[in-house]
């Protein structure tokens, strides 16, 4: 997951209870504990995570048992893979080994060909026994879903604690619980990719999530042009997609996956996809133009 996390609670907007502050603090620490638990379970950098265990067993005959939560997230990943005709692929991460984005190195064609064999969601086996990656070196990464899921989980904990007004922010994914006050929505600014300190547009949210996905946080030069860090699972080449996409939805998970999948397509494809979702969206294209239904 990574990235900064912040939880803001407006305790005055809870009830007439005197212990509002205490309730809010307790709820925030429960939510923080839940975030840490999700990190331990789904991080591919933690060698003791469930994901690392599945990846470590790649190529063996062992099915790793999975619980209802992970099965649901996998089934969402599977649906996204179908809906995007394979562009959204949780096994694509292995290709990052050829593209070192921080160093700006380009690919090694032979190495790329070898690694492409290890990419393919359709090769992953998942049944009642659990999940199995059939080839050694394959890697599963649910990072594209888990951050959004975690934001929803944190918001649900606050809501169940009786908090009526809170904002959960996990690196670009924001869930608004209630409004900022009983009659004002939360004001959220969408960042300008060229100048991340400024916002291009401000939206008002009440009981909704806004998620942004894009390339502005991690872009590098290749052959004299900016390229995305998002890779095409069939060719291994960087995807020539929009610069950034923000989507508003009832949950961070749905808004976030719609935004993520939009960034995997070219501009026209992304637009069709976003219209198909019928959710409010904002796209910033490579020429730094804004378009979409969020005003």
């Amino acid at each position: 997951m990574g990235g900064p996390a912040s939880i803001t609670v407006n305790p005055g907007h809870h009830t007439s209870d005197h212990n509002n502050g205490t309730i809010a603090e307790a709820a925030i620490s429960t939510a923080a504990a839940r975030l840490a638990e999700l990190e331990r379970k789904y991080s591919r950098f933690d060698p003791y995570s469930l994901i690392s265990q599945i990846n470590a067993r790649a190529g063996s005959e062992i099915f790793t048992p999975i619980d209802v939560e992970m099965r649901s997230l996998i089934s969402l990943a599977d649906q996204l893979w179908r809906e995007t005709e394979g562009l959204f692929d949780p096994t694509v991460g292995v290709l990052n080994q050829v593209w070192d984005f921080n160093a700006g190195k380009s690919e090694n064609p032979d190495r790329l060909r070898d690694l492409l064999d290890k990419v393919g969601w359709d090769r992953v086996e998942c049944d009642e026994r659990g999940i199995r990656l059939p080839l050694q070196g394959m890697e599963l990464d649910l990072g594209g879903l888990v951050k959004e899921f975690a934001a929803d989980c944190a918001a649900a904990i606050l809501r169940d604690a009786g908090i009526r007004s809170a904002l959960v922010e996990l690196a670009g994914d924001i869930v608004a619980l209630g409004g900022q006050t009983s009659d004002a929505a939360w004001q959220i600014g969408i960042r300008d990719p060229q100048a991340p300190a400024d916002s291009i547009v401000s939206v008002q949210l009440t009981n909704a999530a806004i998620c942004s996905s894009g390339n502005y946080a991690r872009r590098f030069h290749h052959n004299g042009k900016f390229v995305s860090h998002l890779l095409h699972p069939q060719t291994g080449q960087p995807i020539d997609g929009p610069c950034s996409v923000s989507v508003i939805g009832e949950s961070a998970l749905v808004a976030g996956t719609i935004a993520t999948a939009a960034c995997l397509q070219d501009e026209a494809g992304a637009q069709t996809w976003l219209d198909q979702s019928a959710l409010p969206w904002l796209m910033i294209n490579k020429e730094n133009y804004c378009l979409g239904t969020i005003q």
Binding site: S75, L76, L80, L205, G249, E250, T257, I258, S277, A278
Partner: peptide
């Protein structure tokens, strides 16, 4: 204020999985 439309078929299919 941004209001959310009725779930589109795409959003419905995605939501159903979770």
């Amino acid at each position: 204020m941004q209001r959310l439309p009725a779930r589109s078929p795409l959003v419905r299919r995605l939501s159903q999985t979770v």
